[in-house]
Nucleic acid binder design. Sequence first.
DNA 1: TGTCAACTGTCAGTGGCTGACATTAATCTC
DNA 2: GAGATTAATGTCAGCCACTGACAGTTGACA
Lengths: 219, 219
Amino acid sequence: MAPSTARKPVSCGLRARKKQRTRDALIRAALELCTAQGYDATTVDEIAAAVDVSQRTFFRYFTNKEEVVFAVQEMVEARFVDELRRRPAAEAPLTALRSAVVLAWDEIGAAIESVVPVELHMRSYQMIESTPALVAAHLRRSSDLEEEVAQLIARREGLDAGLDPRPRVLVAVFSGVMRAAGKVWGEGEDCSVDSLRTLTESHLDHIRPAIDDDWRAGR
Amino acid sequence: MAPSTARKPVSCGLRARKKQRTRDALIRAALELCTAQGYDATTVDEIAAAVDVSQRTFFRYFTNKEEVVFAVQEMVEARFVDELRRRPAAEAPLTALRSAVVLAWDEIGAAIESVVPVELHMRSYQMIESTPALVAAHLRRSSDLEEEVAQLIARREGLDAGLDPRPRVLVAVFSGVMRAAGKVWGEGEDCSVDSLRTLTESHLDHIRPAIDDDWRAGR
DNA sequence: TGTCAACTGTCAGTGGCTGACATTAATCTC
DNA sequence: GAGATTAATGTCAGCCACTGACAGTTGACA
């Protein structure tokens, strides 16, 4: 992840605390406005005005309009990578990935809530899935994450991701499936965390059956 | 695919021919300028000026600056979907996908050459992979294609993509792997079609081994 | 040949985003 | 605690992608 945004050590000085507060406020305002009236219909000027800062200041906190929308996602992803690093070496690669996802979701709730209501974050996730520009940004971010995770898996297994394609392939498979699950969830009605988790797990369970040669024999 | 751009029936009237020529010229100019000086450093005004039309006209042919870069890709994708439709029903899903890719590449060369030199198209592919904004657009486009292909696979196997996750999962796996291969190719030196094909096939061959539980036992 | 419809150019305007410079406010030093 | 230092912010000017409206031009077709 970007090292600049990952840290958040309780903020000691007054200046740092103030900064953190504006940042969180910008995120909250952005998510509220965008989920309410749509991403495209929301201008950066509006978001900045809602927090009572200038547009220029907004762009000092976030490099572009998209970034503010993914600020919370980034926390979750950092957590996922963290959990993955902690997985025992004996665990099979695909299993480790799966466990890391489940664990990350279990423990991230509180951290999210300190910035925005979880419910708002969930709604924002669905907004992302239904906004072409954000889908694109989301996919690119996922792709960057994939690279990082592929390197991690390669190291875990004592391989070189540049030579052995399996780490990248596995990660591509994994995150492709995660994305498919997220998309289905985003289109559905139930916007609870539980339903997202259930959907994800059931999708992961289908990887092996899906690449089997004959689906018709299996049922 | 977008129905408006897919057709290209030799253009009968003078008007239609003229339109086709401007469109092709815009694509060629765009790819040449962008590969030479970078996507971000190339303005739409420049591209339009190179073809001697107004900026407004450019935006009547392409909805945005990104789209012109993917015009050729779109031809290839349309071809792939076409080949996939022709695959015998007896073929296993993953095998059908693989065959369709290989066949599409075999026969698309000439069609590409009628718009831009194949070498320019290959260079533009690498430019895409190294330009964040275009990576994002590329991923979003792939995701749309995935949806279409998933529906196709589902129909082929007599399933409902909304109920059975296997079509989506398989397609997610497949295109994730294709993307991984494309990325590796884009970073490498050899920008030939052959090397892209070889890389793709070797990546596809690794799907099964990659999801196996124990990689260390396999070598 | 004249009429219709499609294609194009011009212009004005919006919104995302950036560099430069001045201003304010927190921190550090003595 | 006053003044020097440095970080954060506001203002302004400007670029570029993109759009709507209107007018002019040019193929198509009767």
